[in-house]
Each structure stands twice: as structure tokens, then as C-alpha cells.
Design a protein around this nucleic acid. Structure first.
Lengths: 211, 211
DNA sequence: CCGATTCCATATCGATCACTATGAAAGTTG
DNA sequence: CAACTTTCATAGTGATCGATATGGAATCGG
């Protein structure tokens, strides 16, 4: 588990001249927009409003800064996904995940697409560890959704032969793909129709349903 | 339209000491594996087996080299997609696209995932033109699939109220998402089950079908 | 006010980036 | 063979990469 560096105010010494959380948010937006390797330290320091030595003193290095930024990004998705685990059905949970993803990918105050999908989609061998860390977050989300589906299967809300791993993988794949379409300029209403179409792939609960 | 530089053998002068097509293929594999901005010239020249001046003399610069490599990559997908336009139905065409994508993303002799999905998923402002060129290829594929769907709708093979744009967008989104899952280590059989699950989102042709 | 501690601003560090100047090498043409 | 054309290998260009050394500035406990 990645642990966020605690922001403990020192008893002595010169105080921080910037808000650590606000600066981290700007770093997150920069990584979101331009990716991990393709965001330079100078671009990050410009966005965060601090100098390079301040960045390294406060966050360690570029890798640790990104991991913290990713945690900040995935934070609300985690809460979202946790809330969705309390959704009435797994299908409803998946639908809410898809809608929330579309809204997050097409926000007017944030970059297009998904940080988890784009920030390390490509990269040199030098950033293999970071790529793996991002992949781990994706896999965690997929696993939670799979378990949510398994719950419905065991409760008889979904057919016993439901492949929960495939269904969870499909939802994650659609979300990651919607990130690409959002980057390509697809607007929110359009992406929502795709998300809605994706839920048609869900198996019917019990008896045949028209839709 | 991007035109491939013609390989015209000069009548005089020292002949090329390398196979231009083979070297381009190695460049394509490098961009596929490590992305556009995150593949360095030194990495490219090492993979292609040529020196930097030879690369620049033969292909222009890094950007043109990538555009040629992308054309080489998209070449067979274009043929594939052209062949799929002759598939019996739009749904069958989409299924073939999905299966072909899974096979391409999980080949043992090639990098994981999709070059079109990952090579420019992130990047600085400096590579905006390249990112746009890649997005254009994606949009072209989506448009061709949409038109294939429209054909089935006009022929009564699909419901008249079918949203062909959403359906095409869903297929493209799933393909791009499968690229991410392939990069995360998902094996071919697993990804095929996801592709199969995605086709369940397709509207029923005429009367109710059990599957 | 003083020493200790911490952070800030300036000015870099060596390494690598995309790219190229230069002259020798390898062909064709006569 | 000599003149011409094109490519080759070597070595480097200025710029930027991630990361830091250094010394002064700001706040603390005493």
C-alpha cells in the first residue's frame, strides 16, 4: 500500500511558503493532461508555482510525486467505487461507474480522459515501476467490481453461469476506451450513449426482459 | 492523406546499406512498445540497426518516421477493416474486428496492446500534431464501422432506431480498452471472453433471440 | 538577541534529448 | 581510371532532462 506523506507542521524552521495539497493538485492535473514521463519537472514546477528544490524537498522525486498525485486522483474514484459497492445491484453499480467515468472524463475544469488510462499508457523501461503501480490500481478496481458481481450471482440476481471476471473486464475496458474517445473530442452526451449501450451487454436478471 | 515516401533506388551514388522496410518495421515495434515521445532516437537507431544520420536521411525526422510507422501498423488493420466491410452483417464485422484486435494485442512476437491506443495516449504540447494524426486514424476506423452498421439498418437487418454512432463508438471503446487490459497482462482467452461479452450489447436483428 | 532548524532562490550538475556538420567510403557514369 | 553522386561513420551541436549544491531568509526555542 502506498502511504501518503503526512503533512506534519514542523515545530522549528522556516514554514512552507505554499499549500502542499494545492500544489499536489496542480501536479495531478499536469500528469493528467500530459502524462507521467512527458510531464517535465519544469512544467510541473511552473504549474505548482514552486521551485525545483521545493518540489524535491516536499515530495521526494518525480516518481513519488506522481504516485501521490495518482492517489489524489484515484481517491474520489475509490470513494465512488466504495459507494457503488452499496448500489442495489451489480448492474446498477456498473452503470454508475460508467456514468461517473464519463462525467470525470469530460469535465470542463479538468483534462480530458482518465489519468489512470493515459498517464502511463506508453513509456520507456525507465518508468516500468510507475506503469506497474498504475496497472495495479486498475486491477484493484476491476477486482472490486468482480466481487460485487459475484455477490449478485450468489444471491440469484444474476445467472449462475455469469462470468463475473469477463463482465468486470468489459466494464473496465469500456471505461478505459471512453477515456480515449473523450481525448478525441467526444462530448458528454455522446459518451453517455455509449455507456448506456455497454450496459446492454449485461445478462438478464431472471426472466426475459425486453430491454 | 499521408503518403509513404517512395523507395526509388537511385541510379548513382552509394547504395543504401539497410533495408528501408525492415528498419521501418523495427521502428514501428519500438513506437508500439514505448510510445512516440518516450521512444528516443538512440533507442530507435539501435533497434533499426542504423545510425542517426541514416535515419534522418531516409525518413526525415522523428515525426515523419512515426507517421510512416503508424501507416505500416494501420495497414493491415485497414485491410482487415476493408475485408470486414464485406462481412455478412455489421455485427459479424464488429465481432471480427474485436477478435482481430485481441489477437493483435496479445501476439507473442509483438508488443502488448495497440499502437494507436498507447503511442500517443499521453504527450506534451510539442507532439500535438502527432496525437491528432493518431486520433484521426481512430476516427476513420470508427466512421467506417458506423457506415457498415448504417448499411444493415437500411437493409432492415438491424432495428430502424439503432444508434449506429453509439454502437460504433462502443466497439472502438472496447477495442481501445482491451489494449489497456492486454498491457496489464490479460491473456488472449480472457480478452476473447470480454470481446464476446461486448457483442451481447448488440441489438437483436428481428425477432427475439435467446443469445 | 542567539543558535538551531527548515525552507527558498539562484545557479547549476552530468546525462540525454532531437538533430546535424564533416569528410571518408561506395557505388555509377563516362 | 577520374568525376560525380549518395550514403556512411564519427563526433558533435545547443537545448532540455531529472536532480542538487550552496548560501541567505524565515521561524523556532531559549
Amino acid at each position: 500500500m502506498i502511504t501518503m506523506k503526512q503533512e506534519v507542521p514542523r515545530k522549528t524552521g522556516r514554514p512552507l511558503s505554499f499549500n502542499r495539497g494545492k500544489a499536489l493538485e496542480q501536479a495531478m492535473l499536469t500528469f493528467w493532461r500530459h502524462g507521467y514521463e512527458t510531464s517535465s519537472i519544469s512544467e510541473l514546477t511552473a504549474a505548482m508555482g514552486i521551485s525545483a528544490p521545493s518540489l524535491y524537498a516536499a515530495y521526494g522525486d518525480k516518481k513519488q510525486l506522481f504516485l501521490e498525485a495518482m492517489q489524489l486522483y484515484a481517491g474520489s474514484p475509490y470513494d465512488m467505487e466504495l459507494a457503488l459497492s452499496e448500489a442495489p445491484t451489480a448492474r446498477e453499480a456498473a452503470e454508475r461507474m460508467l456514468v461517473a467515468a464519463v462525467e470525470a472524463f469530460t469535465g470542463e475544469l479538468t483534462p480530458r480522459g482518465c489519468l489512470l488510462a493515459s498517464a502511463t499508457a506508453s513509456g520507456s523501461e525507465a518508468s516500468a515501476e510507475v506503469q506497474h503501480a498504475v496497472a495495479q490500481v486498475r486491477q484493484d478496481i476491476k477486482l472490486r467490481l468482480k466481487k460485487r458481481i459475484d455477490r449478485d450471482v450468489s444471491q440469484g440476481l444474476l445467472p449462475a453461469d455469469t462470468n463475473s471476471d469477463s463482465l468486470a473486464g468489459l466494464v473496465i475496458a469500456v471505461i478505459q476506451g471512453l477515456s480515449v474517445l473523450a481525448r478525441d473530442g467526444g462530448d458528454r452526451p455522446y459518451l453517455l450513449t455509449i455507456a448506456r449501450a455497454a450496459t446492454n451487454a449485461w445478462p438478464k436478471p431472471r426472466s426475459g426482459d425486453a430491454n
